[in-house]
Design a protein around this nucleic acid. Sequence first.
DNA 1: AACAGGTGTTTTACAGGTAAATTATTGACC
DNA 2: GGTCAATAATTTACCTGTAAAACACCTGTT
Lengths: 212, 212
Amino acid sequence: MTADNGRPAPGDATGEGDATDGGATGRATTGDADGATAAREAAGGREDTVAAVVRQWRSVHPELDTAPMEIIGRINRCAALLQQAEDAPLRRAGLSRPEFDLLGALRRTGHELTPSELARETFSSGAAVTKRLKQLTERALVERRGDTRDRRVAHVRLTDAGRDLVDGILPEQLAYERSVLAGLDGDGRGELAVLLCELLGRLEGRPGLPRT
Amino acid sequence: MTADNGRPAPGDATGEGDATDGGATGRATTGDADGATAAREAAGGREDTVAAVVRQWRSVHPELDTAPMEIIGRINRCAALLQQAEDAPLRRAGLSRPEFDLLGALRRTGHELTPSELARETFSSGAAVTKRLKQLTERALVERRGDTRDRRVAHVRLTDAGRDLVDGILPEQLAYERSVLAGLDGDGRGELAVLLCELLGRLEGRPGLPRT
DNA sequence: AACAGGTGTTTTACAGGTAAATTATTGACC
DNA sequence: GGTCAATAATTTACCTGTAAAACACCTGTT
């Protein structure tokens, strides 16, 4: 999935998706493998942007199986829209998302972390963490101290202001997320969590899968 | 969901998640609303990074309902890992993902697009499209011509080389996506497509939801 | 016909990320 | 005890995206 981006963006609008599948998945009674149009209909008639993109690919490459796009494309698009929506309250608090992620890592672990640990914890490069720490330190949201044993390492901790900032923002974000998920019933949410966990397990599990 | 990033990243490792929920969702027999741990177990014992992050938040903020994180966090993390995996073959072909998205938009629509249309179609800013077009034109993957009626607008189309490039990459990406999704059975894939479609419909539907 | 306002595209200035090199320091080995 | 490889963090050079301004051109009005 990709030929259509799916990251933030200024305007908003439509698009997304790409995948294909060669029609090898079998079990395709209609031309709709894996609940493509079923998905659309279950969602209340309105077609989402991914469905539109998939349809375009199908008409250009009828021989390709577009089923994977129905899932991967939607995951990417959902992620992009969610991030866009959640960035707004963050910016209001004067933080970028990567900065909030860093503060969040410190908050949820509950103890000091070294820059390397922060990099691992937030999936960022060390260089990026260095830059963020510089800014956050200037703003007095984190403090650093050197390790006594190993003078190469630093230890970073939240200041009271940093902790309060995170604690103030987090409930907001959760409330928004809850409101979005309210569109699904309890069973739906449970199902979705289970399915995504399986998928994520596969993505995180083997180092790189059969390899692309 | 956010206090843990979830975007590409150099290394790889663990982490992710943030949300909370105040325990207001009701229907919580165990401490596990919405299939949190159920999800972990269904995925084969190994705990994913999101589950670990959620557990951390719960221990720091026991009063918050972490259920939304189980879903939103996994969506973000899945998207990040998928993009990371799919970027590799792209780079091998000398393209960034935004570039591929642009070419893909031209390919799937099957006709010329103006820069504005490309921006809408790929969820990018006009300025970003301008820059990408400059590069892609230099590499002879797209061509542009001015509109005869309205001299403000340009029309962009794929060159043969551009078309061939997209057509060569797309099946690769789809094959990878299929291999990832093979971890789910047919029903699971169908369910997932439907649930994501519902969620996406809600995210795309109303302009901004009740507002965050 | 000139102009006001709008639209399509590009330019500018800048913020932030990355890869690769750099610095500082440790620990292990001979 | 000195050298070597490994590790932690930072610096550097560069690239890309964005927001806002600038440009170019169109259109409806008077």
